[in-house]
Each structure stands twice: as structure tokens, then as C-alpha cells.
Design a protein around this nucleic acid. Structure first.
Lengths: 97, 97
DNA sequence: TAAATTTGGTTTATAAAATAAACTACTTTA
DNA sequence: TAAAGTAGTTTATTTTATAAACCAAATTTA
């Protein structure tokens, strides 16, 4: 009846990051921090978890002398996100079918 | 951009309970446990939290010699659930608008 | 040019949440 | 009357989320 919700995605911040990455396919750490209104520490931890899950790729490089972290959603990440959205439907209908 | 998700509702089990109660308006503890496939202990804790938040009313009585716990969603609970669903939309669109 | 500040993070510590295990209290059945 | 079942609650443990502290390099400013 109720489908299990992927615990990796059932987190406000991680879900927001995935939602952004689904749209843009690639984003900087600072962009994600601004858009999600999160702290760097929290974002750093959550990005690591998404990476560990295989949902995003993280590329660390330098840009204009500063370190730069780029995130991209993976195929697996897209699939997981879509499944999460589908699962969520079972909770959101006005009737409990 | 991303609306905050009510932490009381952003929990798989509590959301499932609310989803059921929105449909039926009243349900027994055991019914909720069966439908959500949860343990009694976990369900007991989560029902208490929904009650503390004012999202459900809990009526304890006896039926056929056994204790019986009945849950009903409140107006406040319905409102919170609807707001949660609305907020969630901002995370689910394919674009990050 | 040395000290303070900023950028872009990571690591560690703490608080909160979810879950499982153990327990309570009573009833039914063998 | 002993064992098993019903309907939960309480306590303990694990997992998450978050905040605070820290790090290294670059930049600004005094």
C-alpha cells in the first residue's frame, strides 16, 4: 500500500540538492548552498552521502585559485529520484489507496 | 525556492498515518499498524508525536475487554497535511523553479 | 608586509529522530 | 493454572540532522 521511501532521498536538504541537479545536471557547491539556504557544513555532509549512494558525482578542482566542488547527478541518481517521487504519490492522495 | 517541509510530517510512518486518517477520518491503532506495516512500539511513539503536534486526536477506550486506541485527524492536521503536500511540490518538479 | 578577513570547504561534536527490544497489564485458551 | 495472545507503552540503541569548530589558501587592508 505505502511504498517505502528511499531514506537517502527522504531528507529535506538532500532532496533539494537532487531536485536542483535534476534540473541543471551540474552545479557548484556554492550555488547549491545558496539555493538550498543551507550551511556549508551540513551541505558538505549531505553531498558526501549522495555521493556514497552513487546518486551524484563530485568533481573537485580549482577555479581562479580557489577550490571548487562540482556536483552532477548520475543515471542511478535520476532513477532513484524518479522512484522516490513515484513512491511518494502513494502517501499524497486524499484517499489511502 | 524550496519551501520548508514540516518535520512532523516529513517522516515515513507519520506521513502514512496521516494519509490514512485523511481518508477514513477515524482508525484503530491496530488498523494503522497493519496498513503501515509498522511495529507497535514505533507506531505508539509516532502517534504520540502527531497528537502532541495537535494533528490528531487520540481516544483510548475498551472494546470487548481489550484496550482500544482510536485516532482521528484534526482540522489542524488536515491543514498541515495539505500544506506539506504543497511544499513538497517545489521539490518534485523536473525543473528547480 | 604582516595581520585580519574571506573563500570554500571538511571534520568533529551535539541534538533530535527513528527504530528495535523489552516490558506492562490484562485476556483467552488449553 | 500455565502458556500464549492482545494491545499497547517505555526504554535503549542506532541513525540522522545540524551546528560549531576547524583548516588551508587567497585576498584585502592598515
Amino acid at each position: 500500500m505505502f511504498k517505502d521511501l528511499d531514506p537517502i532521498l527522504h531528507s529535506q536538504l538532500r532532496l533539494a540538492v537532487m531536485s536542483l541537479l535534476i534540473g541543471v545536471k551540474e552545479a557548484e557547491f556554492t550555488f547549491l548552498r545558496e539555493q538550498t539556504n543551507s550551511t556549508a557544513g551540513n551541505l558538505s555532509v549531505q553531498i558526501q552521502k549522495l555521493k556514497d549512494a552513487g546518486y551524484i558525482d563530485v568533481i573537485k578542482q580549482f577555479k581562479d585559485n580557489y577550490p571548487q566542488t562540482i556536483c552532477k547527478i548520475t543515471k542511478q541518481g535520476i532513477k532513484a529520484f524518479e522512484e522516490y517521487v513515484t513512491s511518494l504519490q502513494s502517501y499524497l492522495g486524499k484517499n489511502g489507496k
